[in-house]
């Protein structure tokens, strides 16, 4: 079997499994999995920048929130239906990502991390500042009537699961395609050795900027879908914590792997879900996980699998 066939089989198998699980899972886990798939899209978007291009951003909540508020504002202020609202979210994400990329990519390494962190913080504060429109911390609910898409009620659990699944499948396929394309290979080359990529004649800045826009748009898609499917838009999703989460998920699952973000999100979601039954200080788990991962498993779960067993994993 060629590597390509193995890749198709493995990822196709996962998608088939997720589609099948829909019919057997109890309601609670059914809802969780829908949430995890949307959040995994966020992590996959993050992974395009962090895992494949080697750009560590600490401000991805800005894109997630841009998508969420782009969608939410279209519904709230313009009375848009879900499909155009979703597109509004994507456009908001792409524009914000292009603007941030054009500025932040002038810096590198630690400065890049701080610049992204600061822009995201400014975005979060802006959401609070324009509280009369965004409703700030309190947020707003997207009513069931506003979540009807072409006669399909997105607040219904089964429809919601399918919508999350379709988004997840599309993004997974897009990522797989991207990383196998010549463009994706250049991104990896930039991650491995930026100087050499530049010497070979690639326009590094342009490649990075496109990576930021793709990453930001995918994160925005996750944000818009999250708001739409679960019916709530709030400032929490723009806070630092939501910039740290995708980093954590990708690190745990394995940076620079197509499956890593989903696996990482799945594990961390249930870890935090279980621990929040025991204590209100559930972010402790996230902290310990971050330290332990940096110390002992910088490659993450799928990264370890790739370096030990399946060398062909994309």
């Amino acid at each position: 079997m060629s590597d390509r066939q193995k890749t198709v089989l493995l990822h196709g198998g996962l998608l088939a499994l997720l589609l099948g699980l829909q019919f057997v899972l109890p309601a609670y886990h059914h809802g969780n999995l829908a949430r995890i798939m949307v959040l995994a899209v966020y992590a996959m978007g993050y992974n395009i920048m962090f895992g494949y291009t080697g750009l560590l951003s600490l401000g991805h909540a800005l894109f997630f929130a841009a998508g969420m508020y782009g969608m939410g504002m279209s519904v709230q202020l313009l009375g848009a239906t879900p499909a155009p609202a979703m597109i509004g979210g994507l456009i908001a994400g792409a524009v914000v990502a292009a603007a941030l990329g054009a500025l932040a990519l002038r810096t590198a390494d630690v400065a890049f991390m701080i610049v992204t962190l600061m822009f995201a913080q400014a975005g979060y504060l802006a959401v609070l500042y324009f509280g009369s429109v965004t409703r700030g911390d309190e947020g707003f609910v997207i009513q069931q009537a506003q979540r009807m898409m072409m006669g399909i009620d997105l607040s219904d659990a089964t429809n919601r699961y399918f919508a999350a699944f379709i988004l997840f499948a599309l993004c997974l396929i897009a990522v797989l395609w991207l990383v196998q394309s010549p463009f994706g290979k250049v991104l990896v080359a930039i991650r491995e050795n930026e100087e050499r990529a530049r010497m070979l004649g690639y326009d590094v800045f342009r490649h990075k900027l496109i990576a930021v826009i793709l990453s930001g748009t995918m994160s925005a898609a996750a944000g818009a879908a999250y708001g739409l499917l679960f019916g709530y838009v709030g400032a929490t999703f723009a806070s630092v914590q939501y910039s740290i989460f995708p980093l954590l998920w990708v690190l745990l699952g394995g940076a620079g792997t197509a499956l890593g973000p989903f696996i990482g999100t799945l594990f961390m979601f249930y870890l935090i879900d279980l621990s929040s039954n025991v204590t209100s200080a559930y972010m402790l788990i996230a902290g310990v996980a971050l330290v332990v991962l940096t110390l002992f498993a910088p490659q993450g779960l799928i990264g370890e699998v790739r370096s030990r067993i399946w060398r062909w994993l994309p």
Binding site: L56, L58, V110, M113, I244, L247, L251, A281, Y282, M283, L284, A286, G287, V288, A289, L290, V291, V292, L293, T294, L295
Partner: peptide, 14 residues
Amino acid sequence: IVATIGILYIIQQV
């Protein structure tokens, strides 16, 4: 930076 973010949450949550 990643490790100190972890330490941040550990100290804060403890």
